[in-house]
Design a protein around this nucleic acid. Structure first.
Lengths: 230, 230
DNA sequence: ATTTTTTGCGCAAAAATCACGCAAACAATT
DNA sequence: AATTGTTTGCGTGATTTTTGCGCAAAAAAT
């Protein structure tokens, strides 16, 4: 047992892929964490992730581990940084290729595989294993940068949403406040939203218009060389 | 000899750090390449870089290899992507943590260690080893993104430069043309440039004003939460 | 000697941004 | 039932920013 049968002329680090999964409940940004069942850091919370197999890419590894540990399938993960500090892991030298993904809370069915997977609000994150607090800070910064220039926010909302929900999301991520009317106009002027229905003329005013993200329009506009610049 | 003395329970990939080094000669963006002296890809051009030691971080490795192979010291390298395709390297599974840096051409003394290091203009890049053409494309994209929001361009120019030189740099990187007067005004209005001398009133007009990047002003402004948005 | 290029200064039209007002519909409270 | 506060859509005027171009002097090129 415990044979050491993979041998090299020079020392090799182990490589893991970890996933910072963002969600949004209408009020605050949430993070999907799993509780570690084994040492080291047993009982502590950490990002889904694990060791990369020798015949998979980092992205494939991230997706596989994510599904194994949380039941979340087909998330569109994106690499954002590789952490290579010497003593990240007490067991051996481990470098971690960190990814992030934005998912709809509704798509993550609790239970099943993910007995110990749990959503935490950004302002209520427990103590994390390894250097995962540093990874989280970096992921959050990347999210803030990214959402200003790519319409990734829509991945966090239901398919159909109101302008106020969209504004709440932007305000939660960027930690700022926008004027409601200006946000409304700015968003519509971008031309990447479609009103779900022309809204009946006699509808009560209080019932807000609903929109969906128009991916075709966006890729059109992008090709013509326009930038979001939020 | 050739003992395989580092053994693990599971297979481990090898890890390298590679460096895409950008320069600017006043007209076009240049890349520093080295010619490979050994197989695989012997004779082909590649980025400086090499295998990570077990007691150094990726960034340390990138800097060390850069100095060893090109003589370039103390470059401020920044990681931008980790390449993990299965068959990147015919020898064994190798993942590469790619970095980039911006340096002044004048700071790279040819010769010495770097017998086979050479600058190539962006539009005249030879066939590259491994997947380095893909790495180059990605680095260039990252540079384009980055220079719009961080004043990194100044690392490519001499300490003291004219507005026209700065404009040429931006145009070379972003592959666009700016109106000279608008560029001039926009840059000055940012408040991150210092005129080297108040410019004598009777100076000939044709002699352009010279500027330097004011790092203090920039970090001041940045703290107050302003963005470049070029 | 003539033409072309480069630099600095600056303005006016067009566009974008910003800070609000207002009324109707609804919910919660008294 | 009346009052109060909230949410939604529509709009508007003031300010700021962007953009496109003119001009003259000095230097370089022809």
């Amino acid at each position: 047992m415990n044979e050491l049968k993979f041998c090299y002329k020079y020392p090799h680090p182990a490589v893991t892929a970890d996933c910072v999964i963002f969600g949004f409940d209408g009020v605050s940004i949430k993070i999907l964490l799993i509780q570690r069942g084994i040492e080291p850091y047993k009982g502590k919370w950490a990002f889904p992730g694990g060791f990369m197999k020798i015949d998979e890419t980092a992205e494939e590894c991230a997706k596989r581990e994510l599904e194994e540990e949380t039941g979340l399938k087909n998330a569109s993960v994106e690499q954002f940084y590789t952490f290579s500090d010497i003593n990240r892991d007490p067991r051996e030298r481990v470098i971690s290729i960190a990814h992030y993904a934005l998912v709809r809370l509704s798509e993550v069915k609790g239970g099943d595989d993910a007995a110990s997977a749990k959503w935490y609000a950004m302002n209520d994150i427990p103590s994390l294993a390894f250097d995962h607090d540093r990874i989280l800070r970096m992921a959050m910064n990347r999210l803030k940068e990214r959402i200003c220039f790519e319409p990734i926010g829509f991945d966090l909302l239901p398919e159909i949403f109101t302008m106020t929900e969209l504004q709440n999301l932007y305000e939660a991520i960027l930690e700022v406040k926008f004027d409601r009317r200006n946000f409304y106009n700015k968003m519509l002027k971008l031309g990447i939203l479609t009103e779900t229905e022309p809204r009946p003329a006699n509808a009560p005013r209080r019932m807000p218009s609903k929109y969906r993200f128009n991916a075709e329009k966006y890729s059109e506009l992008k090709q013509k060389g326009f930038r979001l610049e939020f």
